[in-house]
Design a protein around this nucleic acid. Structure first.
Length: 852
RNA sequence: GCCCGGGUGGCGGAACGGUAGACGCAGUGGACUCAAAAUCCACCGCCGGCAACGGCGUGCGAGUUCGACUCUCGCCCCGGGCACCA
């Protein structure tokens, strides 16, 4: 008997895979391909448990697809630009590049210990000069096709640090370093015209049938197509009307005020003559730029004194400037119908505007129906609305749009919530935007033969703000014709980097073009994409846009980059705090009989909620330590065992122990039984004992069930089934005449089924079973349908829906037989209390329900 | 505020509208051991009962159905996203 030597075994097989290039992908037109990809990591420096889960889930898919005969591409790279590198530069005085590449080296080593079936030959980092080069050429491609433009847009501005802040850097409306209230500022910025594809991006969601429904719904809502109307309200004493967009033209008779965005032209014009209004608009810029901040802010308005007219009634409506109206959506102006919109109601109550309901809920009395603190947004019939009275909402919308069009004061219109993608970032550590501003004021793209525009290496982070903009010489350029120009000092949003890396992986060494067309035509789309649900909208939507834009530029031949998507849950852990409320990490505490205490001094510890692992709460587990003591297979198995992959996974020490015990049990089981196993040539007895038959059925049932679990991302169920098989093998009588042959059959299956999940152990056992070659290259087992059905089935018997017993019958027994057997049960007769059955429902091979 | 998701034993979770709690963790009792670890065996939703068995149970309240964790409606609680974190 031998023990399973985890560390040596894992290192051994990792070396074998690497030396043989087992997972290096090549184009093989003769084989079905499968591109498996997990969202690439940000190189923070340490592999996080969440990474291990993400890459393990993808690895299970990649390895099982390999075994099923697919030509698998499973690459890895680094989402290497971004804010944390600049923070590190400021805090530790290291260069972002140096910090980033050191992190990558560190993490690569850690990743290799997980035993992932990755093709490392395709590794890339988005900060590599080649990647920057090709991304800049894509920018120019998009620019030439009108998919890139420049306009003014709001940013968060820290007035003390004199710098632009990311939303993340705004804490409770204040700058995270300065602590002073953040302001909004307008800057001229570059945008990608994602709205050019609004309809296409929306319509194609219907066909993404291997995406989770919730992600599809979130994307639909994000794009937010709405049918409504553009209505022109005449302004007293002016020629130009005020144009609004509304999704509820049916409520026009309930309008009681107008509101425009603080940066609406009308507001700005009025502010020139009204000092108080100018001050109000200035106040509005003190709200952050996030949608949440704007939505949660108190609804404030300022009466401009201007009045416009309801086009249907001629009724006067005061025009306010209001902080909750967004210039980016619709026309930047709305009519307020307080009875049927909560924001409008809050506003009307505050500023004393009338509230007239015009939609009557079904069954309500028109004489008494009133609006209290809640606006009524449900269905109903129109009233108080002249020619619309009695119509339902949809009917009223159509009728009012027809009337407005006939009057020449409005049109039906479709609007999208989706806004163009602002990609300018006022930061150093990103891909430079390849544009020049000539001193005469014109804007020119950097000539292609001068790409890439690389970041200067001599850069200082001793002051806040964008170091690129402060660099003494980098931005000064002399054009070929001698004119002077200034470089764009903004860099691109890191979401740009992650919007095409999956295409670059197909041909990471391409130099002439962003991608090699033959390679992307073979490998794309990604067959299975795996990542966090937090990317459900932005990253995935941007990538879908990018693919369309790349197609327009001739780089790819498809619209949708990700045919299959799986979004996994987060990894969570308990939190601990001491009496002073300070967070404690799991290794600083210990559980005793009386409860949790601090290891250092035995002080009592409060056990907090289970939360997403985060540095600030100190509930982070270092996967490296787990892998060093238990091995990668153990960590992998635990993550696959308990929680369904799409739900949050709570990390527990006990769970790791359980996985550890299981791995050793499998090892012992095969090790102990191996000596008793005859050579493969040994014939199975012609007639199997009942137990042997049941075991063989279980083997085939497990193949069937575990495979189905893998296909549907129910990995926890696959693990449970494999464990059941293991339990049965342990319990099986070694003296049974069929034992030697059956063990051989079953072990062969067991090891193959385990191979995607615990690949190192599986390779080692595969070798010990006498196989030549790797289990990674072995074929996936196939269940024999003849062994998937049983001769006898157990039916539950209910009386009036309550279970009263069960009967065993030959499979496929007819209704009469089932009925007879059920009624014969003593317990059933007792429950029937002498009554005769009114009805007996029989579901073949499942259940009998006697209704009395 | 808006959008999305989740809620089943002490815990993680199983369950085509058909025997709720598979599998695992923790726990209890026992075997082995000088002892411990490891391992093995048994029990393990709650209440009542020696047992057979009965009652109650899937966040709360209604409804549909022979039958509801599953479908419908209305609530409550928890988590994620909200366009400059990645």
């Amino acid at each position: 008997m031998s023990r399973y030597a985890v560390r040596a075994t894992e290192a051994k097989w990792q070396r074998v895979w690497e030396e043989r290039g087992t997972f290096t992908a090549h184009i093989r037109p003769d084989l079905p391909k499968c591109y498996v990809l997990e969202m690439f990591p940000y190189p923070s420096g340490r592999v996080h448990i969440g990474h291990v889960r993400n890459y393990t889930l993808g690895d299970v898919v990649a390895r099982s697809r390999r075994m099923q005969g697919y030509n698998v591409l499973h690459p890895m790279g680094w989402d290497a630009f971004g804010l944390p590198a600049e923070n590190a530069a400021m805090e530790r005085n290291v260069h972002p590049r140096e910090w980033t590449y050191a992190n990558i080296a560190e993490m690569r080593t850690q990743f290799k210990c997980i035993g992932l079936s990755l093709d490392w030959s395709r590794e890339l980092a988005t900060c590599d000069p080649a990647y920057v080069h090709q991304q800049q050429s894509l920018f120019l491609d998009f620019y030439e096709r009108g998919l890139v433009y420049r306009k003014e847009s709001w940013v968060n501005w820290d007035p003390v640090d004199q710098t632009v802040l990311a939303n993340e850097q705004v804490v409770d409306g204040r700058g995270w370093r300065s602590g002073v209230p953040v302001e909004r500022r307008k800057l001229s910025q570059w945008f990608f015209k994602i709205t050019a594809f609004s309809d296409a991006l929306l319509d194609a969601i219907d066909d993404l049938d291997r995406w989770p429904d919730k992600v599809r719904l979130m994307q639909r809502n994000w794009i937010g197509k709405s049918q409504g109307a553009r209505v022109r309200f005449s302004i007293d004493g002016r020629d130009a009307p005020l144009e609004v967009f509304t999704t509820r033209p049916d409520t026009l008779y309930g309008a009681s005020f107008m509101a425009v965005a603080p940066d609406h032209p009308l507001a700005l014009e009025q502010a020139q003559s009204q000092l108080a209004l100018a001050a109000f608009i200035d106040d509005c810029t003190r709200i952050g730029t996030s949608e949440e901040a704007i939505a949660k802010a108190d609804k404030l308005g300022f009466d401009t004194g201007l009045v416009c007219r309801n086009p249907l009634t001629g009724e006067p409506l005061p025009i306010y400037v209001a902080n909750f109206v967004l210039m980016d959506y619709g026309t930047g102006a709305i009519f307020g119908c307080p009875a049927h919109d909560q924001r409008d109601l809050d506003f009307a109550r505050k500023y004393g505007r009338p509230v007239t309901p015009v939609v009557l809920p079904d069954g309500a009395d028109p004489a008494t129906f009133e609006i209290g603190e809640q606006a009524y947004v449900g269905p109903g019939r129109l009233f108080h609305s002249d020619f619309l009275d009695g119509l339902d909402i949809e009917g009223a919308k159509a009728a009012v749009i027809a009337r407005l069009e006939a009057m020449g004061v409005g049109d039906g219109e479709t609007t999208f919530r989706l806004r163009d993608w602002g990609v300018s970032r006022q930061r150093y550590w990103g891909c430079p935007i390849p544009v020049l501003y000539v001193d005469n004021g014109s804007v020119v793209p950097v000539p292609r033969d001068q790409l890439p525009v690389l970041l200067p290496e001599d850069i200082a982070f001793d002051e806040p703000g964008n170091p690129l903009a402060r660099h003494p010489s980098w931005s000064r350029v002399t054009l070929r014709d001698g004119r002077q120009a200034r470089r764009e000092t903004d860099t691109m949003d890191t979401f740009v980097d992650s919007s095409w890396y999956f295409a670059r992986f197909c041909s990471p060494a391409a130099t002439e073009h962003p991608v090699d067309r033959d390679a992307v035509d073979y490998w794309l789309p990604v067959d299975q994409y795996v990542g966090g649900v937090e990317h459900a909208v932005l990253h995935l939507l941007y990538s879908r846009f990018f693919t369309r834009a790349m197609r327009a530029a001739g780089h790819v031949g498809l619209d949708e980059p990700f045919a299959g998507l799986f979004t996994q849950g987060m990894v969570t852990h308990r939190t601990f705090r001491d009496d002073d409320g300070r967070w404690l990490s799991p290794d600083e505490v210990r559980e005793e009989d009386e409860g949790w205490v601090r290891v250092s001094d035995g002080a009592p510890v409060t056990v907090g909620r289970v939360e997403k692992m985060s540095k600030s709460k100190k509930n982070v587990i270092d996967p490296q330590a787990i892998i060093e003591s238990y091995g990668a297979d153990c960590a992998r198995l635990f993550m696959l065992s308990d929680s369904p992959p799409d739900r949050d996974l709570e990390w527990t020490e006990a769970g790791i122990d359980g996985a550890w015990r299981y791995l050793n049990r499998v090892w012992r089981l095969i090790d102990e039984r191996l000596s008793g196993i005859a050579p493969p040539a040994t014939a199975t007895p012609d007639v199997l004992s009942d137990e042997a038959g049941a075991l063989r059925r279980l083997v085939h049932g497990t193949i069937d069930g575990a495979t189905a679990g893998l296909e549907r991302f129910h990995f926890n169920k696959s693990v449970a089934q494999i464990r059941e098989l293991t339990n049965a093998l342990e319990a099986f009588d070694v003296a049974d005449p069929a034992a030697p042959a059956l063990f051989r059959e079953a072990f062969d299956v067991l090891v193959r089924l385990l191979a995607p999940m615990t690949p190192h152990l599986a390779e080692e056992l595969w070798e010990r079973l006498g196989n030549v070659g790797l289990v990674a290259d072995a074929a996936w087992p196939v269940a024999d349908p003849a062994w998937l059905t049983a001769d006898t089935v157990t039916l539950a018997v209910q009386v009036n829906g309550k279970r009263r017993g069960e009967v065993a019958l030959p499979a496929g027994s007819d209704e009469a037989a089932a009925r007879e057997a059920a009624l014969a049960l003593e317990n059933v007769q007792r429950a029937m209390a002498g009554k005769s059955p009114r009805k007996v429902i029989v579901v073949a091979d499942r259940i009998v329900n006697v209704v009395v």
